[in-house]
C-alpha cells in the first residue's frame, strides 16, 4: 500500500514544514520531551513509498528547510538523515510486517542517533531522556501510522 500524495513535491514539502514547525515550537512537549516528528515523517515516507526518490526528496526538503530557518545544528540533522538512510538500506532484514518494522525503526534510529551525537561531542548521555523520547515517539508514531494507513485505504478506494 502506498500513499500517492507522498509522491507529490508540494505535499512532501508541506508535511515536512508542518513537522518542522510543530517540532521547533515545541507545542507537543510533554514532561520536557519533544517527539521527533521529522524522524516519524521520514519513516512514514519510507514505509508508504516503494521508491527511494520520495525519501531522497524529503531528505533534501528537510535539509533546505533547516538551512532556511536555522543555520545552526546541521550536524545533528545530518546524523539523523544518515540514520534514516542506513535504516532504509537495512529494513529488508527486519520482520517484514510494515507497522512492526516502522516501530522498530523508531527505536533503532533514536538509539543510533543519540549514540552518534554523543560520539561527535563529549556530552553526557541521559538514558532517561532517550527512553522517554523513544516511548513518546512510539506512541505518536503509531497514531500517525494509523491515520496515514486509513488515509491510504480511503484514497485507494476513491481511485
Amino acid at each position: 500500500m502506498s500513499v500517492k500524495i507522498l509522491n507529490n513535491f508540494f505535499w512532501i514539502v508541506f508535511i515536512v514544514l508542518i513537522c518542522f514547525f510543530l517540532q521547533e515550537t515545541k507545542i507537543l512537549v510533554i514532561g520536557g520531551i519533544n517527539p521527533n516528528l521529522i524522524l516519524i515523517a521520514l519513516l512514514l515516507i519510507i514505509f508508504f513509498q516503494k521508491d527511494f526518490f520520495p525519501l531522497l526528496f524529503s531528505l533534501i526538503a528537510v535539509s533546505v528547510i533547516f538551512l532556511i530557518f536555522i543555520k545552526f545544528w546541521l550536524i545533528s540533522l545530518l546524523v539523523l538523515e544518515l540514520s534514516v538512510i542506513i535504516f532504509y538500506l537495512f529494513k529488508k532484514f527486519l520482520t517484514g510486517n510494515k507497522a512492526v518494522d516502522f516501530l522498530i525503526g523508531i527505536i533503532l534510529i533514536s538509539i543510533f542517533y543519540h549514540i552518534a551525537v554523543v560520539s561527535f561531542s563529549n556530552y553526557y548521555f541521559s538514558i532517561r531522556l532517550v527512553l522517554s523520547e523513544i516511548f513518546y515517539n512510539l506512541i505518536f508514531g503509531f497514531i500517525l501510522w494509523l491515520v496515514v494507513e486509513k488515509f491510504a485505504i480511503i484514497y485507494e478506494k476513491r481511485t
Binding site: E24, N36, I38, I70, S76, H114, V117, Y123
Partner: peptide, 14 residues
C-alpha cells in the same frame, strides 16, 4: 529568541 534546538539532546537557542 528565534528558535530552540528541535531535538531533545541539547538546550540551545538562536
Amino acid at each position: 529568541v528565534y528558535s530552540r534546538y528541535p531535538f531533545n539532546d541539547r538546550a540551545r537557542l538562536i
